[in-house]
């Protein structure tokens, strides 16, 4: 369970504050797969970053006992000038896992070949997504925070990703921000609709999707 209490987030714009989230009070389950739907610019990604503690709210707090992943699907998180191995090493160190095992696992999973010793900036976007996914699978989180499902990579990788994700679902859940209705319908059991800084919970995914279409 992730508890958001009075969470408020605004950005400073030319004309005063622009509120993305306003006094948000909501409990997000971590024992089920959750989808977050909302229009473009509704603040879905910001919400995910706040849940992941990658960004601090201006007011309010987030409480949880679950081990949450970093917000995945962003290009960030890796330092482009460093090699794949150096990045893996860094992430392993901050999460306290063995980096040599991590390199082995990532190499086996993401199949980067010699590229693993090259700077990340030489990677294609597919390779970046693969190394990030592989690394997050190795660290093992209770709940994965995903910004748009990684639709990258060739079909072979996608199959592997789906397989490992299904295996993952035995012990982990995810919170997913997506535009893709069929992905949400397939993967999620609970849906939150984010609109005008407020969140509404739906245990009926189809009903949520119907309302989402009307937004």
């Amino acid at each position: 369970m992730i508890q958001l209490r009075d969470v408020t987030k605004w950005y400073r714009k030319q004309r005063g504050r622009h509120y993305v989230l306003r006094d948000l009070n909501v409990d997000i389950p971590t024992d089920r797969n959750v989808g977050i739907l909302g229009r473009n610019g509704a603040g879905k990604s910001t919400l995910l970053r706040i849940i992941a503690r990658a960004e601090a709210p201006n007011r309010g707090e987030i409480r949880t006992n679950a081990r949450l992943s970093w917000p995945m699907g962003f290009s960030g998180g890796f330092l482009a000038s460093m090699t794949g191995v150096d990045n893996i090493r860094f992430i392993s160190r901050i999460y306290g896992v063995d980096w040599q095992e991590a390199v082995e696992f990532v190499q086996d999973f993401a199949e980067l070949g010699d590229y693993i010793n090259e700077p990340i900036k030489t990677y294609s976007s597919g390779m970046r997504a693969r190394i990030a996914t592989a690394m997050s699978l190795f660290v093992r989180f209770d709940c994965y925070l995903i910004d748009e499902i990684p639709g990258v990579g060739d079909s072979r990788f996608r199959k592997r990703f789906a397989d490992s994700f299904n295996e993952l679902r035995q012990r982990s859940t995810m919170i997913m921000v997506s535009h893709n209705e069929s992905t949400v319908r397939k993967a999620c059991e609970v849906v939150f609709l984010l609109n005008n800084g407020e969140m509404q919970r739906f245990d009926d995914v189809d009903e949520a999707l119907r309302l989402y279409r009307e937004l």
């Binding site: 970053r49 992941a52 503690r53 990658a54 949450l68 970093w70 917000p71 962003f74 960030g76 998180g77 890796f78 330092l79 482009a80 860094f90 992430i91 901050i94």
Partner: peptide, 11 residues
């Protein structure tokens, strides 16, 4: 120069 690393919650 390390902005990307702020993505990780404890950094």
């Amino acid at each position: 120069s390390n902005r990307g690393l702020l993505l990780y919650p404890h950094v």
